[in-house]
């Protein structure tokens, strides 16, 4: 038994050390965007929500324009991960550093995160995906993510960066898209995206649990600071689809946020998106400035 345990532990230890060293050295902000966010330290203030926020709201601009006491971190993920439910709330709490009551939380509310497939109404499928599935975040190297939460079958984490990636995560969590988009590519992207969303439109129904959990998330975060909901600008085609699916969405968000709702859907004509969903990188700062101005106005600063 001694020999067995010794060999097993020796093998396990060498394997763990080598893997840990590799991840520690090669997991950069260009490798796996989810991993980088998960291993970041705890923060007092957050930008939360879907990829619209992850790509479209710049923390540095918010900090500059709002004179924030604490750094604000962009902890937004793709819409299938950042869904309002018990596991996502838990994931947010694990990342939250309880500083004082001067924190700021910008929650991007995306219509699609309140709609679920009818077959999934008895469960919360996002609980199996990172960051929600990670029990021990904020650690680097993170073996839990490496062994279980990995973006399957995504090899980016172990392949050293070749500098040709189309995106990276900046130091405060925003996903910066460096790829160039011409109008033909954008049209093509919008067409594909609209097709996907039209299919989605036919297969989802409103999930009241999601609204309840958004309210719970707001209530929890309000203990530590100010909470604002933001609706990001999208392409016109997307806006039409969303208005058709949920014409009273804005009223509902306004009610949930007690009026602290920054609605930028009216800018959907102004800012061009890369795919109907995400505003282009060159507009990120100005959109973020508008959000900051709205926050200043609402807080009467």
């Amino acid at each position: 038994m001694g020999r067995f345990l010794f060999k097993l532990s020796l093998f396990g230890t060498i394997f763990t050390i080598l893997c840990g060293l590799y991840i520690y050295l090669f997991a950069t902000n260009k490798s796996d965007t989810i991993y980088i966010k998960i291993i970041s330290p705890k923060y007092c203030s957050f930008i939360l929500g879907s990829s619209r926020a992850s790509q479209g709201i710049e923390p540095l601009v918010l900090m500059k324009n709002l004179n924030l006491k604490h750094e604000i971190y962009n902890y937004a993920f793709t819409v299938n991960r950042a869904v309002w439910g018990p596991s996502h709330l838990k994931a947010i709490k694990k990342k939250l550093k309880k500083c004082d009551t001067s924190a700021l939380f910008i929650i991007e509310c995306n219509l699609w995160s309140f709609y679920s497939k009818s077959s999934k109404l008895n469960s919360f499928p996002e609980e199996n995906a990172p960051p929600n599935s990670i029990v021990f975040p904020n650690i680097h190297p993170n073996f839990e993510y490496f062994s279980g939460g990995y973006d399957f079958p995504n090899l980016h984490l172990i392949i050293p960066s070749d500098g040709k990636e189309n995106s990276y995560v900046n130091e405060l969590g925003r996903m910066v898209i460096t790829k160039k988009f011409d109008s033909t590519l954008i049209d093509q992207n919008i067409k594909t995206k609209m097709k996907t969303y039209a299919n989605k439109f036919n297969s989802v129904i409103k999930d009241e649990r999601r609204f309840k959990y958004l309210s719970e998330t707001i209530a929890e975060l309000s203990k530590y600071g100010e909470v604002f909901l933001v609706r990001m600008p999208v392409a016109n085609e997307m806006l039409v689809l969303e208005e058709e699916l949920a014409p009273k969405f804005d009223e509902r968000m306004k009610a949930i946020s007690n009026g602290r709702y920054i609605n930028l859907k009216y800018l959907s004509n102004t800012y061009i998106t890369t795919d109907g969903n995400h505003i282009q990188n060159k507009y990120v700062d100005s959109v973020t400035c508008i959000i900051a101005d709205s926050v200043n106005i609402q807080l009467k600063r």
Binding site: C19, N128, S147, G148, Y150, F152, P153
Partner: peptide, 9 residues
């Protein structure tokens, strides 16, 4: 296994 394990899924 570590790289391709869809554990819990």
């Amino acid at each position: 296994i570590g790289l391709f394990g869809a554990f819990n899924e």
